[in-house]
Amino acid sequence: MIIEGHALCLGPDIDTDVIIAGRYLRTRDRSEWARHAFEDLDPTLSSRLEGTVILAGKNFGCGSSREQAAIALKEAGVRGVIAPSFARIFYRNAINVGLPVIECECTCSDGEMVRADPAAGKVAIGDRSYLTRPLSPRMREILSAGGLVSYWRGRR
């Protein structure tokens, strides 16, 4: 699995309340979460997420266990998230909903082309390239099945 997109740079410690605010959680309409993603950070951001790879600072996705945070980004067309570290529940959630996440410390400038291979732990941004920890075999399988639901159904 290769992820490709334009870099979108975000700061450290982006919490799940910022990714999708608590006031939008009670619905089954997933596009609602995509529409309001990052609203409290920058209300214009959600319309620019399609086709991006988010390059964030450390501790991305800290805070609540709400899976809507990972779903919101996937629904909004984010191709993947790269950060030096993730909060562990968000990390598991992202894999489970089929949103690739890569732990990598890299420099970011908005709009640069990003190409990454989470299974191999390879990231290329503009003309820079990084080697990082590859995903565990099980996470790789879940991700390539498109998430835990289809992985689980496929195994039965």
Binding site: A70, I89, G147, W152
Partner: peptide, 13 residues
């Protein structure tokens, strides 16, 4: 420890 919803669904199953 805490998990998200899909992890929990797999635990139910």
């Amino acid at each position: 420890t805490g998990v998200g919803a899909t992890d929990m669904a797999a635990i139910w199953a």
